[in-house]
Simulated scan of single mutants.
Amino acid sequence: MKLSADLAAFEARLGHHFAQPDLLRRALTHGSMSGPGREDNQRLEFLGDRVLGLVMAQALLEADPDAAEGLLAPRFNALVRKETCAEIAQQIDLGSVLKLGRSEQRSGGRRKLALLGDAMEAVIAAVYVDAGFAVAQALVLRLWGDRVHRVEADARDAKTTLQEWAQARGLPPPSYVEKARSGPDHAPVFTIEARLQTGETAQAQAGSKRQAEQDAAKALLDRLG
């Protein structure tokens, strides 16, 4: 079956023409829209996560042949984490073609980082199944652009780094407190405060609690020097 105009436009933004269009439809179908005769993207998401991981692991090894595993692991995590996948999804306006149930549409599902990240992984899997690993690899490397080369050597997520900082000084893990929530239900903004037992704090705002916690942890790390 031929793709609709909006999916054909997305196909062009993605940079891959599907020989099997149903793969793209499935990759863009959230679980809230699944039903008899309509598969959702969860199985493709599972596969896409592994394809992305292999592409990034190989790319990092080639980009820095002398880097130790301890240096490669945090770089890898920064490149494949859900937030990065969501950034790529936003870059190609994936949210506009996501097939969502009514409840997800009303709650702002097209802007949710988790849904966008999952769908991006599913699309990668769809390309892999449609055209093979080499084509999927080329697509991922093109979409991720120079991220592989500019990812910081200490790209370990901020919450993990802050926890290790505290443990190295005999302190309990930092705590994260929701200080405020604003905005409509479909697009909330969370204010999170990261706290150390010694009294140091830092706050950050983001559209998800997870991202706000990461940003608060990074702000506190910056404050600690």
Rank of each mutant, 00 (worst) to 15 (best):
A153D: 11
L7C: 04
P36I: 02
P74E: 04
Q214K: 09
V51A: 05
E87S: 09
R75C: 00
L23P: 02
Q105D: 12
A153L: 14
E200T: 07
V127S: 08
H16Q: 07
P74N: 03
V151F: 00
G37D: 10
G37S: 11
F46E: 15
L79F: 01
L3N: 04
L143R: 11
G70N: 06
G170C: 05
Q203E: 10
F46V: 15
A216L: 02
N77I: 12
D130N: 11
L141H: 06
P188D: 08
R25N: 13
V140E: 01
E104A: 13
K82I: 15
R50N: 14
A78S: 06
K99A: 13
M120R: 06
A134E: 13
A59Y: 00
V151E: 00
P174L: 01
L28I: 06
I92D: 10
D22F: 12
V151K: 00
D6H: 08
R25A: 14
R110Y: 08
A138G: 11
A168S: 08
G170K: 00
K159P: 07
E69N: 12
D118K: 13
Q214T: 03
A27C: 09
A202I: 02
D66Y: 00
A180T: 05
L28P: 06
S107R: 13
A8I: 03
L28W: 04
A67G: 00
G35V: 09
G207Q: 09
H186S: 05
K179I: 15
I92N: 10
G207C: 05
Y176G: 02
R50G: 13
L141V: 11
L221P: 02
V140P: 06
S34W: 10
S4R: 06
F10P: 03
